[in-house]
Design a protein around this nucleic acid. Structure first.
Lengths: 130, 130
DNA sequence: TCTTGACTTGGAGTTAACTCCAAGTTGTAG
DNA sequence: CTACAACTTGGAGTTAACTCCAAGTCAAGA
């Protein structure tokens, strides 16, 4: 699979893919004899994981660390497990914040919709802001 | 409430609070006759909202837009409602991505924990990466 | 009143994560 | 064999969101 095909498949730029490889977010990609990237299934699996974890706000640094440990072999399984658990906690915490924001948003939207219908904005004592 | 007290209450730096005010993420804060910030309940409510929505990944630009609309008065209620709904959609989408990453993480952690117990890492055909 | 520490401003600097560029190479269609 | 698009690299530039700094002002305690 060429870099272009991977770009299109995952809606990501070629620059980002090359950047991920350069800094170690994914291991080095398989090449043709001429030196052009030819993504194999394994390469693609790494790309998919990288995108997935980046989408969840996991820092690039953490992904680099994981790949590094992976390449050091089975002796780093404990370290990798810890890293993943740490990532899990961060993501859970972030998600909790998303839920809180959603609650606040839903409340505000509800109040605005009433205002739109009645033409009057109603406020309680402790919400003098918008 | 002084800027320091607000910092401590919300675990945020004074620089960030001043930055939020400068760029318009929150409206101008109440001052003492000497020009020093003296946060009132309303100011604090804005700070709280800003932190909450930033924590959910809402871009500073969007918060600025909201404050601007708010300050233009009731004629912008529709625009504000739309903005909030847009924010809601983005947050929901981001949250979905967090859930996908969590699933993947849980699966990987589970597999690593088995490896730790048995000393053997088991792989299925389509997961040759770590 | 003096000192000391917290506050003020405008502007410059930093960080993470890309994103773009120039100059050169590869590979395919005619 | 020749175009020509798509690929390669190292390195520089950009963006969002802070973060720091210098030089000056304010205010509470001795």
């Amino acid at each position: 699979m060429t870099i272009k095909e991977v770009c299109e498949k995952y809606d990501i730029t070629a620059d980002t893919l090359r950047y991920y490889e350069r800094v170690g977010v994914i291991p080095e990609v398989t090449r043709t004899p001429g030196g052009i990237r030819d993504y194999q299934e394994t390469d693609i699996a790494w790309v998919e994981n990288a995108i997935c974890f980046r989408d969840a706000g996991m820092p690039v640094e953490m992904l680099i660390e994981y790949v590094k440990l992976f390449q050091e072999g089975d002796s780093t399984i404990d370290a990798r497990t810890n890293l993943l658990k740490e990532a899990r906690e961060s993501i859970l915490e972030a998600r909790k914040k998303y839920d809180i924001a959603l609650e606040k948003l839903d409340y505000k939207i509800g109040r605005y919709e009433i205002a739109q219908k009645t033409g009057v904005l109603t406020w309680t004592e402790d919400e003098k802001d918008g």
